[in-house]
Amino acid sequence: MTNGIAFKDGAWVETGRTGWALGDRGGLLGDGLFETMHAIKGKVARFDRHMTRLGRSATELGLPGPREAEGIAEIIGELVARNALKDAIVRLTLTAGPGPRGLDRPDEMVPSLTLTAAPRAKPPASVSLALSEIRRSPASLAARHKTLSYIDNVQARRQARGQGSDMALLTDTRGHLSGCDSANLFWLRGGEVYTPATACGVLAGTVRAEILDSMPVEVGAYPVEMLEEAEAVFVTNAAFGAVPVTTLDGRPLGTGELPARIQALFS
């Protein structure tokens, strides 16, 4: 992380001084959640979707929401201004806070909230995928929620890079398409847009939600072979919007371009 200003538990601090407490359950056990958001001139794209997902996940995982919940939008605006950023990626990290040794949470949790900002990198023109040997379990909380337990994604990306690809493609434990290591997956076939269902171990992204609310999308459990017959394949996340996929394991996929109806959402 580059040097700059961060927000941590009600105070503005230098990013080099934002370390968690030694007993923080987020650092020790991955007991927490995060959101990655795109902020343009201090305004977060799809902010309400991010906060809805964070709140829903916190409720299901039994985590208290951030104490600063009502003012997060304003804090982000000040955060990017303090870092002199016009086009930024903001990371919100919410942990269960400190606790005793072991798995049991304390009777009264004191959640910890950290917000950091960095310049947004230019989105890639396209990405290449490598099919990962790592599988997502539809029953796993780490697959369905944006938790701090991200080792499967880290390892999948590392393996994909080792094969000369940009990103890993993951299936679920039944062999159905799930998504990528840091993005949701879509494809166009027969003029229809498709995406895997959340029941396939999919983390429901905010851009994914926007596409589903904007046009008809076929949602279900699909084999990897579906991609080989697609006219176009693309991936989505909050950082880069939508980007076309050119290859899977070195084999060409589709046209390598975004469908016009998807381009229109991000133009």
Rank of each mutant, 00 (worst) to 15 (best):
A139D: 13
R91T: 15
L169G: 03
D166V: 08
A121D: 12
P64N: 12
I89A: 11
E60N: 12
R56T: 05
L131W: 00
Q155W: 08
A39V: 11
T52R: 12
A84L: 08
R46A: 04
A39K: 12
E60M: 14
A156L: 14
S149T: 05
L79I: 03
R136N: 03
S165W: 09
I40Q: 09
P106C: 05
P100D: 08
V44D: 00
A156P: 11
R120G: 04
T52M: 09
R158M: 13
K122W: 02
R144Q: 11
V110P: 08
I134F: 02
M51S: 04
T95I: 04
A142E: 04
G71W: 05
L94T: 06
A58V: 15
I40E: 13
L63F: 10
I89F: 05
P98V: 11
L63H: 03
R135P: 12
A142T: 13
R161C: 02
P123L: 04
P123Q: 06
I72E: 01
E68K: 07
G65Q: 02
S149A: 09
A84F: 09
R144F: 00
R82K: 14
T116F: 00
T147F: 02
S57I: 05
P111Q: 00
V154E: 03
K86R: 14
T147K: 03
L113Q: 01
